[in-house]
């Protein structure tokens, strides 16, 4: 943890002062760019991502001999990191067409590195007990019938759809308008708040309709059922104001910095090859959340038990 960079940066300041101007990445530990050394992994704040990062880190360090620097960052800042050279790879990217456009097409500092094999599912969920009690609730057409169940102090007399994890652009408001649902979106503001509310809805048997996604460790703990919205067809979400269809399934993918990809190191190849299933990820997530393991312990356990899955990721000849 201790980094004695004082002398180095002092010298650097002097040098830079002599030749004028310091660019934005001056003085920081330079990214590996291929040399066997450090790989800078962005770690976005959800457990599924941490599972990816745990396993990739374990393999990079134990099997390929790299040092991995994990950087705990929100998505948007991770992408910025490609530009400043502080991030080499993002392991689980959920769409983010806007960021792809900025950083891959316009700034040309990042490139895609293929699918993680995980499928991201976004949708509206209710706790299992509600489905047991009101079997037809899972069809959106019946939601208005049950709107009064979902009334809260925040929903202004309508039913409440708890959404608003700000990390993701959602269509919830438009969906409610266009499907003529007697509901209103309450912006929870964080994933943790949604999870907590979902846990309480299960434990207290309180009605809750909420925006959520898989893979997610919570599903290993408790059952929630997805509401059927009008099925997704290609292009049905083209105009964000007129959306009246379900969210598409996302192919979660990996993004790496251009420099990192161009160097084509074994680290880059491993990240490119990394591909597993939702069940794999949920298993590691379960180790992390519910069994209290550290990232390294969880990764070690999974790696020991799933050699067939990760063997093909290791680049040939290393």
């Amino acid at each position: 943890m201790m980094r004695l960079r004082t002398v180095a940066s002092a010298a650097l300041i002097l040098t830079l002062a002599a030749c004028g101007g310091a660019t934005s990445d001056a003085g920081e530990s330079t990214p590996s760019a291929g040399a066997k050394g450090t790989v800078n992994l962005a770690v976005n704040p959800w457990v599924g991502y941490e599972s990816d990062a745990a396993v990739v880190t374990y393999l990079l360090e134990k099997k390929l001999g790299y040092t991995v620097e994990k950087k705990e960052l929100k998505e948007e800042i991770s992408w910025q990191g490609f530009e400043t050279g502080e991030v080499d790879a993002i392991l689980e990217n959920w769409g983010h067409a806007d960021l792809k456009k900025t950083y891959i097409e316009q700034k040309k500092v990042a490139v895609e590195a293929g699918s993680t094999g995980n499928t991201g599912i976004i949708g509206w969920y209710v706790p299992q007990w509600m489905v047991d009690q009101y079997p037809d609730i899972t069809d959106y057409k019946n939601l208005n019938k049950y709107a009064s169940l979902f009334k809260t102090s925040e929903s202004k007399g309508k039913g409440q759809l708890l959404g608003g994890d700000p990390s993701y652009v959602t269509n919830d408001v438009a969906l409610i308008n266009n499907l003529k649902l007697d509901y209103t979106v309450v912006f929870s503001g964080s994933e943790a708040a949604i999870i907590k509310a979902a846990q309480q809805a299960g434990a207290q048997k309180k009605p809750l309709l909420f925006y959520f996604y898989e893979p997610q460790w919570l599903f290993a703990q408790e059952k929630f059922v997805r509401i059927k919205l009008p099925p997704y067809t290609a292009g049905c979400d083209a105009d964000p104001k007129k959306v009246a269809c379900d969210y598409p399934d996302y192919d979660l993918d990996k993004i790496v910095s251009k420099k990192f990809a161009d160097a084509n190191s074994t680290a880059y190849q491993l990240i490119k090859n990394f591909k597993w299933t939702n069940d794999d990820q949920n298993l590691v997530s379960d180790y992390l959340t519910n069994q209290g393991m550290s990232a390294d312990q969880a990764a070690e356990k999974w790696v020991n038990e799933h050699e067939a899955t990760w063997k093909p990721w290791i680049p040939a000849g290393s």
């Binding site: 102090s153 925040e154 708890l162 503001g189 943790a192």
Partner: peptide, 8 residues
């Protein structure tokens, strides 16, 4: 949040 829900 658990006690008062996601609310003002």
């Amino acid at each position: 949040v658990a006690l008062f829900g996601a609310s003002r």
